[in-house]
Structures are given as C-alpha cells and as structure tokens.
C-alpha cells in the first residue's frame, strides 16, 4: 500500500512539475557569445530565459513596408546579456549573426537605445520615445517565440510605449552567435 502511495506521489509530482516546467527546456538552440577579448560562452535558451528579463512592446516594419506585430515581447537587453563575456563599451560594435547566414552590426549607442528610428502607423518618422531597448527576444505574447517567425531567439527593439514601429532590419531572426568587436 505504501509503495502504491509513494508511486502515486511521485507521479503527482511529475505531473505538477510538468505543468509549471520551463517551456524553454526542450529547445535545442545554443547561443554563442564572444567577448572583445575572445572569451566564449555558450548559453541555452533555457539559461537565457532564466536571466533577468524585460517585457514591453515590439512592432517592426520591413524595408518594403510590411508590418510585423504589435507584440508584447520579452527578452534580455543585449547590453546586459553581453556582460556574460566582459560587456560592451563605447567605440565597440556588436555583430549579431544568424543560423541562415545573416549578419547585422549594432553600434554601442544603438544598444543604449540611441540612434534608433521610430515610426508611426503611417510610417512617418516620430520623436523617439523615452525608452527603446534592443533585446534578445525569446517570448512574444507570453509564449516561446516560434521558429517560423525567426525564433527561438530573435533581436527586437522593445519600446516602453505601444504602437511605436521600429526598423525591421535590426530584428535579426534565428540568432545563434553574438560577438563584441573592437
């Protein structure tokens, strides 16, 4: 009887653990961070999701005017993520590359939320909102970011205010390597 009870308790624990388990645990997508001095660190999506995160609004537009979003996005500010490999400083650049062979380069100022363009619903330039934060996004609208949309890890520009459209060129899909140069 005790044995059966024990088994039932274990099963109950497994079920309850499953219900609240980390949804990023099974995602096989290692991210390589490389610091300016060559320090390398590999993080899983689950480890990234366990870091202090931020949430806000995300809304992008492609170079030909296709809008993506708006979403409620969650991720780790890139400037903070890079502290894992020594940080990034003024005058340095950050090269974000993707599994599909794509590369984009960010300036230090952009990671600090400067030199970023934002647009209104008619794609006219508007005054930059108080806070814009380039993040490595792993969730949108409360769910892990899907592969078909560029997940599980995608660069995004998070804004504190809603309905602010940002440049899609910075929203690198399928990010798998981030290097600090300079």
């Amino acid at each position: 009887m005790k044995k059966i009870l024990l088994i039932l308790v274990i099963i109950a624990c497994m079920f309850s653990a499953g219900c609240i388990s980390n949804p990023y645990e099974d995602i096989d997508w290692p991210l390589t961070l490389v610091g300016a001095d060559g320090t390398e660190k590999i993080l899983s999506v689950s480890e990234i999701a366990a870091l202090p995160s931020v949430s806000g609004h995300g809304y992008a537009v492609s170079t030909v005017g296709i809008k993506y979003g708006p979403y409620e996005i969650t991720g780790v500010p890139l400037i903070e993520l890079l502290n894992q490999v020594g940080g990034v400083h003024e005058g340095q650049t950050v090269h974000v590359s993707a599994a599909d062979g794509y590369l984009w380069v960010f300036s230090y100022e952009q990671l600090m939320g400067e030199d970023l363009l934002c647009l209104d619903a008619n794609l006219k330039e508007m005054k930059t909102p108080a806070k814009m934060t380039p993040i490595l996004m792993y969730a949108a609208d409360g769910k892990p970011y899907p592969y078909d949309d560029g997940g599980p890890l995608r660069m995004a520009t998070m804004t504190a205010e809603p309905d602010v459209i940002t440049e899609g060129s910075l929203w690198v899909k399928w990010v798998d390597r981030i290097e600090v140069h300079g």
Partner: peptide, 27 residues
C-alpha cells in the same frame, strides 16, 4: 565603414530603404 552613420546635423541622412527615405523627403 562597418556602421554607415553620418555625423549628426551633417549634410547626409541615410534610411533603410526608399520607402523611409522618400517619406523623409516629403516631410
């Protein structure tokens, strides 16, 4: 250069594409 960023307040402005450039021209 790696970053195509003209000096602030200079003669040149760069935008991602024609769409944004021509919006800027019209405004």
């Amino acid at each position: 250069p790696v970053l195509m960023q003209p000096e602030s307040g200079s003669k040149v402005t760069i935008r991602d594409s024609s769409l944004f450039l021509l919006n800027l021209l019209e405004s």
